[in-house]
Write a protein that binds this DNA or RNA. Structure first.
Length: 320
DNA sequence: GCCAGTCAAGTCCCG
DNA sequence: CGGGACTTGACTGGC
């Protein structure tokens, strides 16, 4: 038996005026003459983003969704060079605590996917330092919400830099200088241009990092199309995690724009996948990456039910 | 009110 | 080798 739980990313198409990613660009920031007022504005935006996150969590509970990825744009300009003196966490304490209190009452898997500027295998020291800083910010946000930080940040391996083997060795080398508490947060995903399932698995096994299998990326970028041959190894990377295995699902927008995400999830592709892994794990969490966000989740849920899966609630299914 | 162009960050790809 | 594409949602500025 396998329990399948569906999750979605960052925002809801059903909640109005509820963006968790409002922002201010640096150009806009620097055009405000009173710097203190400009910083207050940044703080107001960040607090509003967190309040909208809480609304989203309530929406999830109301719709029995147990899995959610926070936006990584919660704090505009958080690590900008010119705002090094800004202690941005202090004014956010209260808003973060409220989220933490709510999560305590309504347990839900929440995590982050820092964007593609966070590169652990970069040969550039400044880029590496910025990446560590950004990871530390994610850690502070999780801690502010009293969420156990272990395995909550999905990252890609990084750039190939014209030599994939070398780039993987550089990942291992740089990994050694990442603070242990940040290492603990990281999980790694196969990507759609450079690092395949096998490449990522090599690093995950070597360094003890759980692997997030992205099925769509795999179809766009593989060495061996028989991913099932590696599935047991993928499952094993989660053996010592407090969390169930997770994966990403999305569907190609079109043949021409194969790598771009479609509005919705193609249920045939997903059902095919589920059929293969049925019974191999007690529980799996599937993060839906689709333009239509939570609506894609609802529609996929209906498709799964129509296909005969036993529905536990809006976001959960049981496969015998 | 709508549409096009712009935005912190890095890497890849094409000409 | 250099500049544009990539990707994403939000926001600005021009009409």
């Amino acid at each position: 038996m396998t329990i399948v739980r569906l999750g979605y990313v960052a925002m809801s198409v059903h909640l109005k005026n509820c963006s968790p990613s409002q922002t201010m660009t640096y150009r806009q920031f620097s055009s405000i003459k009173d710097r203190e007022a400009a910083i207050l504005k940044l703080e107001r935006i960040a607090i509003s983003n967190l309040q909208n996150c809480l609304r989203l969590l309530k929406h999830n509970v109301a719709n029995s969704i147990h899995f959610f990825r926070f936006s990584s744009k919660l704090i505009p300009l958080a690590n900008h060079e010119e705002l090094r003196d800004w202690r941005y966490m202090r004014p956010l304490k209260e808003a973060l605590r409220e989220i933490g209190d709510y999560l305590k009452e309504h347990p839900m898997r929440v995590d982050f996917h820092p964007d593609h500027f966070v590169l652990l295998n970069t040969p550039n020291v400044d880029t590496l330092n910025m990446s560590v800083k950004t990871l530390a910010m994610h850690e502070a946000l999780l801690k502010g919400m009293s969420v156990n930080t272990e395995h909550r940040c999905v990252l890609h391996v990084g750039g190939a830099y014209e030599d994939k083997e070398k780039a993987m060795e550089l990942f291992i080398e740089n990994w050694g200088v990442i603070p242990h508490k940040l290492q603990k947060m990281v999980i790694l995903e196969n990507d759609d241009t450079s690092f395949t399932l096998e490449d990522t698995l090599y690093l995950c096994e070597k360094l003890g990092i759980p692997l997030v299998f992205d099925y769509h990326h795999h179809l766009a970028n593989f060495q061996n199309d028989r991913w099932l041959e590696s599935w047991e190894r993928v499952v094993n990377t989660w053996a010592h995690s407090p969390l169930p295995i997770k994966m990403h699902i999305s569907s190609p927008r079109s043949d021409k724009e194969y790598r771009a995400h479609a509005d919705l999830i193609d249920p045939i592709m997903f059902l095919g996948f589920l059929n293969e892994i049925k019974g191999t794990v007690p529980e799996i969490h599937c993060m839906i990456e689709a333009k239509q966000k939570d609506e894609a989740l609802f529609q996929l849920g209906d498709d799964l039910e129509a296909a005969g899966l036993e529905r536990i609630d809006q976001g959960s299914f049981r496969m015998k």
